[in-house]
Design a protein around this nucleic acid. Structure first.
Lengths: 348, 348
DNA sequence: ACGTTTTAATAAAACGATTCTTCACAGATT
DNA sequence: AATCTGTGAAGAATCGTTTTATTAAAACGT
């Protein structure tokens, strides 16, 4: 391995000067171009690569950002990660990604690992986190810029980025209503998931505004669960039960895409075709939504944008920290978008 | 921040002794239990956490493994990552995951970043990598244990883990044949993808063994593409064309699940129901395969196992390296598994 | 011609661990 | 009595940077 001293020797200057030149430190201003050229030349010739451990040890900076996801296999997260990744990449930060797998123990262990590695900020992707929100306590202690994606916070030390669930719920039911549906079944999210209430609130807001009647026997809740794809099965079961109950409906609004897939399966098993006999609308717009047949009409979360937003928030937080500015937490709510595909149409 | 010297002071011993005790170094054998207890007590009391930069700088170890995926949004990779992650986690290694996004430039930059951070090994997840395989050259130079998942290598410095594509192809067509299908359409993978040839070879092997006739006009190739989900659209188009050509077939074997989804869409658009009028079998078993309706019969790649296998290969490589043993590259081929769902059935 | 900036470069001191070498003292062995 | 050996612990060197003084000459203003 070639060290800074090798470059110093080769170029004929001291290690100090080499460091100053290569990092373009403030003092580099006083160094003549000829010297700079010589040093840069030597560095390139020798293939010098600074030892990041030494550098970080001295400078107390790691140029890394910790990213924790609660479940990597949840299709929701890969696009968010794209957004994060791209933003950090531009800023020359390396994301260190950990998959907590919905386990408290892993969360703690990975958080420790990340802090031990002196990540300069933390992005937490809380897709489907039921496990008690007391992880917030752990996060607050870390004292580095932190942002949580997918969980609404009124916290002033941790920032948040979420989708506007209420608007999403409103938009979804508005779409069905506009198509002419009046008998709509609803599968709401689990009570403990913070997304559930606002989505439903949006639905009720629309219903009230337009005088849509909601049959309480056609509005059911997903049960609690730790696994994000479990809503497929529970969506299937709940739909089956509603069908058995013989309360007719021409459209179904599912809490998320997984639930919608489960509902479609149940409808199909019962001999009902989607969308001919029943429309279905989901929420999220995971990759599979556009792949299955019929492709799913759904409310798209702007996942890449959310990731990018989160990254820019923590990057801003890092600069603030370096300049010793106090920076209050920010809370962003991004608008979702209706993606109309083939799983919805006007009732016969 | 509390340093090892603080612990030394508090416990009344030297930093040396503290280091030896806390790391359970060989010399710790000579240290009485009482001393150990005192030191461990002090460390815990002060909340001592060793500075990893200092530690790594001195010990020349990072306890990290670089993981490069060529496209994170490819659903194929998340489960493989699970497998990798779980194995590394147990061994107390931290994976550093980078998403190359199929760009050569990113590959190079990330590889540099990882090597700069002194990862002790490299796992490359080459799902859908068309970009010239000359990345191998770059990888070989790194001189750390390296394994490639998803690309067959006859290389003796880089290990590989792949699925047995030939067996998979054989199994898929065998399944269709057993159901009674004799007119089968095939969508083969792109020529440049190394998975394509062996899968087709498996098909031909079965056909020859059982006397199944393959109509060359019903066997088409996916075009080249850099994007893994593009096979959805091209699968759609190719199926459409085969339908237009009016050569009847009762089953279709797709190169992968994406292609199968595209094919199902085309069949459905043409008014053909799956599986009633045409069976479809895919390859991979991505998450969406079991979610869509009808759920897709497919050849499951043992993704978690592949990830775990790759991780254990590099961990073994690391130990070998530490003990200065020469360890030749190993090449593993894992058997896929037929997942029978509802997209296949006997012809009418 | 004198003190003050500016320019140019360096030596030495961190940064916080690990590891190499040395030392002291038992008790056992020649 | 002298020499090993096994314990127990510490001092000093080291890892490869960055940063903090410091020095020394050159440029500048009066």
């Amino acid at each position: 391995m070639v060290t800074i001293r090798d470059v110093a020797k080769d170029s004929g200057f001291s290690a100090t000067t080499v460091s100053i030149v290569l990092n373009n430190a403030p003092l580099a201003r006083y160094i003549p171009t000829a010297t700079k050229k010589r040093i840069e030349g030597a560095a390139k010739k020798l293939g010098y690569r600074p030892n990041l451990f030494a550098r970080s040890l001295r400078s107390r900076r790691s140029h890394t950002v910790g990213v924790m996801v609660f479940d990597m296999t949840d299709p929701f997260c890969t696009l968010v990660l794209r957004g994060i990744e791209n933003s950090l990449y531009q800023a020359s930060y390396l994301p260190i990604l950990t998959d907590v797998q919905n386990e408290r123990a892993r969360f703690e262990r990975y958080l420790e690992m990340l802090l031990d590695r002196r990540v300069e900020a933390l992005i937490v992707l809380a897709n489907w986190l039921f496990v008690n929100i007391d992880v917030l306590g752990d996060l607050e202690k870390s004292n580095i810029p932190t942002v949580m994606i997918g969980r609404e916070l009124k916290n002033d030390s941790i920032s948040s980025v979420i989708v506007d669930n209420e608007l999403g719920g409103y938009t979804a039911v508005e779409h069905l209503y506009a198509l002419g549906h009046r008998k709509i079944a609803f599968i709401r999210g689990p009570k403990s998931l913070t997304d559930s209430a606002p989505r439903w609130k949006g639905v009720k807001a629309f219903a009230k505004a337009r005088g849509l009647e909601i049959d309480p026997r056609l509005a059911v809740d997903l049960p609690e669960s730790r696994h994000p794809t479990s809503s497929f099965e529970t969506g299937y079961k709940l739909t089956e039960e509603m069908l058995k109950a013989k309360r007719p409906f021409t459209a179904l609004m599912a809490f998320d895409d997984m639930t919608a897939f489960g509902a479609i399966r149940a409808l199909s098993r019962a001999g009902l075709r989607v969308p001919q006999q029943c429309s279905v609308v989901g929420f999220d717009d995971v990759a599979a939504a556009s792949l299955c047949t019929p492709p799913l009409t759904t409310i798209r979360q702007p996942m890449e944008a959310m990731g990018a937003m989160a990254a820019s928030i923590v990057l801003e937080g890092i600069s603030a920290m370096l300049e010793k500015r106090e920076l209050p937490a920010v809370h962003r709510k991004l608008a979702p978008e209706l993606a109309v595909r083939d799983s919805t149409r006007s009732p016969a």
